[in-house]
């Protein structure tokens, strides 16, 4: 008996040591992850002389809060923000709309061949974008769309295989009897989708909307290729190209970068649960 008590005590001590090691590493890593963001804000608050001071002050000696205001005129910040929001908003609309219909068609209507066609469709996820980049550019060029938002937005109205997969998985968990009962009552497929499925799908649709928004908001290559007029640029494109053109007013670039990050960070804090649920869903099976 004493031996077993001994063993348990040992166990508790061991657990505690393990825990404190885990804590120490997690906290060190957390500090390391925060540091670049901290450095971004600190640099944004410095004067143009303090930027080049050596060694660099770890706290801003006299915080230049007006840098944030100045940065929004140094680059046409609000203009670029508006462009980014418009492109992201339309992209979300197109993705959510099209993926809802497509996923419903694959998951809730029993037509012959649907599984094999779904697999073929899903394989497009594995296509590297370089392959279609040039022909798509030439098509949009022939349509006269280069230099407008259309090439960035319109393709999203034709579905996204990953999100169709996610919504289909979700729809498959809803018992088919629910649809059958509605059909007996004379509901059409569209009626079932609108009145029964969409209310049930809301959590999954929120995931698709959020992920699509963040992805579009962060995009750089698309706008780089298609947006040619300076007043049409997105915030990412504007930040980079301004830095190239006018050399670095580092503290203002940092202030503008901080402001550009804010929307997604705020969004994350308000919708954290949806994000976490979405991440669990995307990792679900292969």
């Amino acid at each position: 008996m004493t031996a077993s008590i001994h063993w348990r005590e040992n166990r508790i001590v061991q657990d505690r040591i393990k825990k404190s090691i885990a804590y120490t590493i997690v906290i060190i890593m957390a500090v390391a992850y925060i540091f670049p963001l901290y450095w971004l804000i600190v640099t944004a608050l410095k004067t143009d002389l303090e930027i080049f001071q050596q060694p660099p002050p770890i706290f801003p000696p006299n915080p230049q809060w007006q840098n944030f205001g100045e940065s929004t005129t140094y680059i046409p910040f609000w203009r670029y923000m508006w462009n980014t929001i418009v492109i992201s908003g339309l992209t979300v609309l197109g993705t959510v709309l099209s993926c809802t219909f497509i996923a419903y068609g694959f998951a809730r209507i029993r037509w012959p061949g649907r599984n094999i066609i779904f697999l073929i469709y899903l394989s497009t996820i594995m296509l590297p974008s370089q392959v279609t980049l040039i022909p798509l550019y030439l098509i949009f060029r022939d349509l006269g769309w280069v230099g407008t938002f259309l090439p960035l937005v319109v393709p999203h109205f034709f579905g996204n295989a990953l999100y169709v997969f996610l919504l289909r998985q979700f729809l498959l968990t809803i018992p088919l009897e629910l649809s059958d009962a509605a059909k007996i009552d004379g509901a059409s497929e569209l009626g079932i989708l609108w009145y029964i499925m969409i209310p049930l799908m809301r959590p999954a649709l929120a995931v698709v909307a959020l992920f699509t928004f963040v992805q579009t908001y962060r995009d750089f290559l698309g706008p780089l290729i298609y947006l040619q007029n300076q007043q049409d640029w997105t915030i990412s494109l504007g930040l980079k190209l301004f830095q190239n053109m006018y050399g670095a007013q580092w503290q203002l670039m940092m202030a503008a970068s901080t402001l550009a990050m804010l929307p997604t960070i705020v969004l994350f804090f308000f919708t954290q649960k949806t994000f976490v649920r979405g991440i669990a869903l995307t990792g679900l099976k292969g």
Partner: peptide, 8 residues
């Protein structure tokens, strides 16, 4: 945004 973080 990747560009914003890459600048820092």
């Amino acid at each position: 945004p990747v560009v914003a973080s890459t600048i820092v």
